[in-house]
């Protein structure tokens, strides 16, 4: 492997929804163990790019993809790639918190139950896993007496943290986040951002955001996209302070978007 420090690499990735080309020749390398943010105006293909990385895009019928995506050095469109394994390695957090309408406890274990043979999880073992996952997202103290409550009845902030927590037992390498804070208030946003900074290092984060202040706060690298093309990819500070491309400058200096 020539580039071990890149979790995700794409080569000339193009994607069409029917006749509409949503991604045009995107080549990008996402560094491992860091937080990378994807910014750009609505409809520029940020979310589409993000969704390519665990192949959730394919569920929508008329999608055509060209080019190459390598995750941890492995092309994810190879015929021997199992979607199950891919989605175990690449977790995803969505825009709206979407805990499954089952108990908090079962939410955390749902992923693990899919990936382990039936009956192989012991009760004491699963209790431990749940505690560990909730502790690492700072929810254990709040929820330790509410493990049996329905996850959809929690506060939004707790729900979103739970959505992150349920990925952790699967030991993913990469966590994709699609505007994870857009449904949260300032306090919730801060909590999720803190959580990300703590977890970065162990996991590679790729986060789509509309909030440029957030991109600046949390990410170490930043990608600017415009109408399906990747315009600029640099360190966050450099991209915001001395953008190379005039389109990037227009956007980050709020002259556009």
């Amino acid at each position: 492997m020539e580039t071990n420090n890149h979790s995700i690499e794409t080569q000339n990735l193009s994607l069409w929804y029917g006749d509409f080309q949503a991604l045009i020749d995107v080549s990008v390398n996402i560094p491992a163990g860091k937080i990378t943010s994807l910014i750009g105006p609505s409809g520029c293909g940020k979310t589409t790019l993000l969704r390519c990385f665990n192949r959730v895009n394919e569920r929508y019928g008329n999608v055509t993809t060209k080019g190459e995506i390598k995750i941890l050095g492995k092309n994810i469109y190879d015929p021997d790639v199992s979607l199950l394994e891919l989605r175990k390695t690449v977790g995803m957090v969505f825009q709206r918190p979407n805990p499954l309408p089952i108990s908090v406890y079962d939410n955390i274990l749902f992923g693990l139950r899919i990936h382990s043979p039936f009956g192989s999880l012991k009760r004491s073992q699963s209790d431990e896993i749940v505690e560990e996952a909730l502790t690492s997202v700072f929810l254990w103290d709040d929820l330790k007496d509410k493990l049996k409550t329905r996850a959809t009845s929690l506060q939004l902030e707790q729900q979103q943290k739970l959505c992150i927590a349920r990925l952790l037992p699967l030991k993913p390498q990469i966590i994709l986040m699609d505007e994870p804070c857009s449904a949260l208030d300032a306090k919730g946003t801060l909590a999720v951002e803190e959580l990300m900074s703590v977890l970065a290092g162990t996991y590679t984060f790729l986060i789509v955001t509309h909030n440029m202040a957030q991109a600046r706060r949390v990410s170490s690298e930043c990608i600017y996209m415009f109408l399906g093309e990747l315009i600029e990819h640099r360190e966050t500070q450099a991209l915001f302070e001395t953008p190379e491309h005039p389109k990037t400058a227009d956007y980050v200096q709020m002259r556009y978007g």
Binding site: L83, L84, E85, N98, R166
Partner: peptide
Amino acid sequence: EAAFALGAN
């Protein structure tokens, strides 16, 4: 989406 993204078939 949540279930699919966790790897459920």
